[in-house]
Design a protein around this nucleic acid. Sequence first.
DNA 1: CTGAAAGCGCTTACAG
DNA 2: CTGAAAGCGCTTACAG
Lengths: 335, 335
Amino acid sequence: MSNALSGKGRVSAELIERIRAKASEVGYVPSQAGRALRTGRTGVLGLVLPDISNPLFPQIAQAIEYAASNIGYGVLIADSRGEVAMQTEAVNRLIEQDVEGIVIVPRRGTRIADIGCPVAVIDSPSTPGNTVAADHWQGGQEIVEHLTGLGHRNLVLIGNNPASNVQNDRIGGMKSRIPSDGKAEVLWIEPLEQEWGKGCLLGLAGKVAEGFTAFVAVSDLHALRALTELHRAGIGVPEEASVTGFDDLLWSSVVTPGLTTMRMDMPRIAEIAVGALARVIEADCPETSRTATGTVASVEMTKVPMQLVVRQTTAPAASPTPEMSPQTPEGKCLC
Amino acid sequence: MSNALSGKGRVSAELIERIRAKASEVGYVPSQAGRALRTGRTGVLGLVLPDISNPLFPQIAQAIEYAASNIGYGVLIADSRGEVAMQTEAVNRLIEQDVEGIVIVPRRGTRIADIGCPVAVIDSPSTPGNTVAADHWQGGQEIVEHLTGLGHRNLVLIGNNPASNVQNDRIGGMKSRIPSDGKAEVLWIEPLEQEWGKGCLLGLAGKVAEGFTAFVAVSDLHALRALTELHRAGIGVPEEASVTGFDDLLWSSVVTPGLTTMRMDMPRIAEIAVGALARVIEADCPETSRTATGTVASVEMTKVPMQLVVRQTTAPAASPTPEMSPQTPEGKCLC
DNA sequence: CTGAAAGCGCTTACAG
DNA sequence: CTGAAAGCGCTTACAG
């Protein structure tokens, strides 16, 4: 009977008739609850995010939601608000809500225990038990290659947390591409978890005086800070110094000059994470109803390349091979 | 029997025994699916967001999730990706997933049709059928009062979309507080939906020459743009001109000088929206099982005041009543 | 006061 | 090839 609706059995005139009948009845919506109970499938994935201070939140959440809805899953969010304890609690809440799998962007330094449902972890490739991540190392390499290609030799690398896998990967990649005739200095600008300097300086002007011509930050936030400090010190960007960031946050294209940065391919990352989850869920399901266990161990870790976004904060310092003219902003200006 | 677990009936030794038995069985999790089917309650709310380009996304999502989980609801997200058609589709997807109510942050200019489930709308107070919103008008008033209090008389108001209720409320509020001995000029800086100026200027330096001393933007994004343009033009902020934004986006405290801005009380807004939903859901439910209809009409529109956040981009222009010293950044500096 | 039974809406083997 | 029945896990009136 309901085969008509689901299109399983073979009906012809009946099919159309039934569908009409059902559809006309004040908009029949085939309650997920009943289906869920019967099939053990809820069609819902959980998404656990670290905390609001992560400016990538929107990109991640949107990408996961998109990838999930594309293959017919809903996404239940849970925010761990930066506390490790909350992260576990968030996971439990999601499980109680019958999610079939969980995508988790772990809080820094957190290991994900083997909970009783499939899990996909999005973090740095250096994180053990990870599922998918941007290739931060390669990102670091590319941004430095971009700068050295422009002729820069002396770079200041700016990070704020030596304990972060993501930042270490990025900086490691950067270092690996410093040419033999160049040098790099790492500037860790903040004790962990601390409010940012309000008016306190990093001494970037001094670095310029020392001969550094490029400031390579591990995030756009740091780059923005460097940018404003250089502005204040009267150092022209990109004429006298180049600045780059990471992540291509929303405002990065808005500041003047626009920030050169590396972008993660979040849609791809999300697709892989959600796809991996869907695979084990759909393989697991016929057998074990709602006791689907185990992490997504079968899926080996995937690294997704990052993409260089060249804007106006990078330019030839003393360019032997000028890759592009920073004087020509792409896009027309209608002001 | 299961009364023991739920704590309804009165059992004493039995209670403890049962709980032990259940709890020991590989961690009994009282499947939402069964409960949902029986009670018609899924305990899940939907959240429909406009699109990723809204930098408030994280604040909103986090606040809603927090408010919802506080009163025992989960949050299923749906992103309308900026398309009006997708918004309806997103709502339908959520309904199919048996959400009991929907919080919707509508796409600009969209009216929410009466769908078959309780809805709470978060938008500008000027939007008809709204449930709760920040008091953007009052926000505009306060930011201008802050500036006039510092002695500013000639203000440039910066917006980008005259069709936005939010922006109009903010600018309306601003205008209403321009003193009789002052003047205000509105600068609409962008044709709708257009890529931002990459290097193209707003002519802010000219405004300064004309005697304007404060630039009051409807969003931090615009303020940041103004800030960088003034920097480039060699105009000191806040010495020669003050700049203010709106929304207190993440990076607003990071730029140097920190951006003075108005902040929405998102936790409060979320609490009201979710609370309104919960009220009609829980009132509605005993009678109509899963056919809970109607919008949250019973809840009259609520305006939540915005809060001034003073940082370093505002200062006395020619201050008759200096409210605070901008030279003293709050917070210690450990650099 | 406690335990067995009915039924929420669905799907899917199973009998007709 | 089609229609009636069983059962997913829960809750809640109802009989003992």
